[in-house]
């Protein structure tokens, strides 16, 4: 199943490039770096983990295997924090 970001999570992008997710259910804020923010953006239900890894590979020129592993790990973290709707 493709990852889907919870629509009620508020996203704030700051001028220094960092992105913050605020979960209104837990009142907890999470800081994302530029890569995390990009992955979050693609958690729209349209992109699979493979798609997201491929898009990141284009942006950051990372080896395929490593990229897929990083994306999976990051999505698992998002899921552990209950920020995603669909299972990864």
């Amino acid at each position: 199943m493709n990852p889907i970001a919870r629509p009620d999570v508020l996203t704030q992008q700051l001028a220094d490039g960092s992105t913050i997710l605020f979960d209104p259910q837990t009142s907890i804020a999470h800081e994302l770096n530029a890569t995390g923010a990009l992955i979050w953006e693609y958690c729209d239900g349209e992109h699979s983990i493979g798609d997201i890894a491929a898009l990141l590979r284009e942006c950051f020129d990372t080896p395929t295997v490593e990229c897929q592993k990083d994306v999976t790990q990051f999505l698992e973290t998002l899921q552990q924090r209950a920020l995603l709707n669909a299972s990864v």
Binding site: Q12, S18, F22
Partner: peptide, 20 residues
């Protein structure tokens, strides 16, 4: 950093004041 400040201040917001 701005993100650290944002998170610290968000935790001090009154619940009713939390909107976009």
């Amino acid at each position: 950093r701005p993100a650290q400040a944002w998170i610290a201040l968000a935790n001090l917001c009154m619940v009713t004041g939390k909107s976009s």
